[in-house]
Design a binder for these strands. Structure first.
Lengths: 244, 244
DNA sequence: CTGGCGCGGATGGTATACCAAAATTCATTC
DNA sequence: GAATGAATTTTGGTATACCATCCGCGCCAG
């Protein structure tokens, strides 16, 4: 008999990896530490380059070293921090190359996720919901880039959530976290993303058709262009070697 | 020059993730635990479905709970085990669907890695080395499938190692670990992989040419076919739901 | 002035102790 | 006989204590 596992909130899988940090109550201290730290890093409250000793981290979170150590292991695995014994844990600074590497993995995975979503077929309700999001994105394109970006994240996350492959989702989520900071940084520099808007329409159309190959091609093209643009912006925003 | 990786053994990155377990001396207990456990799982000495309490694991490895806990966190992150509080850690059994999901991610990443390797260009020495490996693979195709499979792993790993994107390598390595057991299981069922041999030649040729698009196309096709075949074999080897 | 060597203190790795929560079992009752 | 509830025992989560080690600093020598 299967254990049913109904109440399994063991993983926040589908939940957007967006820094939200609402219910940090009643979860094990290790997870609190993990989420808290992750939140602080992604929002920049723990700036890249910051290094803290394990003891300091524990004090910062009012916990003992054990749970923060365990949290740090996860963060390290996720690529957000680096631990150097006797030197403390350092919030990783992203070089331009790091960012390129991350985008490379992220894109490959996201394209695959979109393909799978196309293959499974988009429920009609979901399709119209996405359509409405696109409407709003186009509406705010010229005047509220932050809102546009949030919607962009939600759009991509929504499709990824429909791919039906939990491992893929998890991996994407991890890499999403890594590129988030850099994205945030170049946000104000972005020109109105009319290209993205158009490409999004095309991708959504392919998704509705359930055409895997077409989805693949369009999303791939979209990511290639967008990634290159972001890379260029980041390059402008910091010398080729600087921190992100 | 390649960094040689002499001093910095912080990560066994490029090193084949193949279970080898040679120098488990003089490394922190946590890493010993991690490698030891991983080895036992991948080779099947810790069969899927096995569940052990933390205490039992600690006793098994003659360590205290702390380092094994930390090792287990990594293994869980890697998808090899599952921890259910008060129920111990369970070696994950792969359903057919799990295997499909893993292959999906793995393929997407490997294709990308091959692309990047193509773009960077293959050093001549490396190219001839790979060529020789292909020679041997063709030689043993009919009579030693195990050897063929080892070479296949090494071949793929070699190219991945040339992609120049450490994060990509690490992620691939993690997923490689997950599909390894299933691969091992269906090994004896495989027909002589003449298709793979031919496709490998084609891919290597594309790599030598440094033709990214061609490499992509060929490797993609290769993986699609090979993955489908493996999935079918696995399906034959266990009912659609069984353990792997 | 520079480079090596050694000593002391900071630091993290590991073991262990303690506690809270959950599971199992037993008893009691319907 | 089954089901429910309580008590016990098991287990994992967290805190802490301990120790080996590594780092940095200063001293001494070349």
């Amino acid at each position: 008999m299967r254990p049913a596992e109904s109440g399994s909130r063991k993983r926040d899988r589908g939940a957007r990896p967006v820094p939200s940090l609402q219910g940090l109550t009643d979860m094990p201290a290790r997870d609190r530490a993990y989420h808290d730290l992750r939140y602080r890093i992604l929002t920049g409250r723990l700036a890249p380059g910051t290094t803290l000793l394990e003891t300091e981290l524990a004090a910062l979170l009012s916990l003992s070293r054990t749970p923060v150590r365990e949290a740090v292991i996860k963060l390290e695995e996720e690529g957000l921090v680096e631990v150097r014994p006797r030197h403390g844990v350092t919030v990783k600074a992203l070089s331009l190359q790091d960012f390129a590497h991350i985008l490379n993995v992220f894109s490959a995975l996201e394209v695959r996720a979109f393909e799978l979503a196309a293959e499974r077929g988009l429920p009609l309700a979901e399709a119209t919901r996405l359509e409405r999001m696109l409407d709003e994105m186009e509406a705010v394109t010229e005047r509220d880039i932050a809102r546009w970006s949030d919607l962009d994240d939600e759009l991509h996350a929504s499709v990824v959530a429909m791919c039906g492959n939990a491992r893929l989702q998890d991996t994407i989520s991890a890499f999403w976290g890594q590129q988030y900071r850099a994205r945030l940084m170049i946000l104000p520099l972005r020109p109105p993303p009319v290209d993205s808007n158009n490409e999004h329409r095309g991708i959504l159309e392919a998704l509705r058709l359930g055409d895997r190959a077409l989805t693949r091609a369009r999303h791939h093209a979209h990511r290639d262009r967008a990634d290159a643009q972001q890379l260029a912006l980041l390059h402008r925003s910091l010398g080729a070697n600087g921190l992100a």
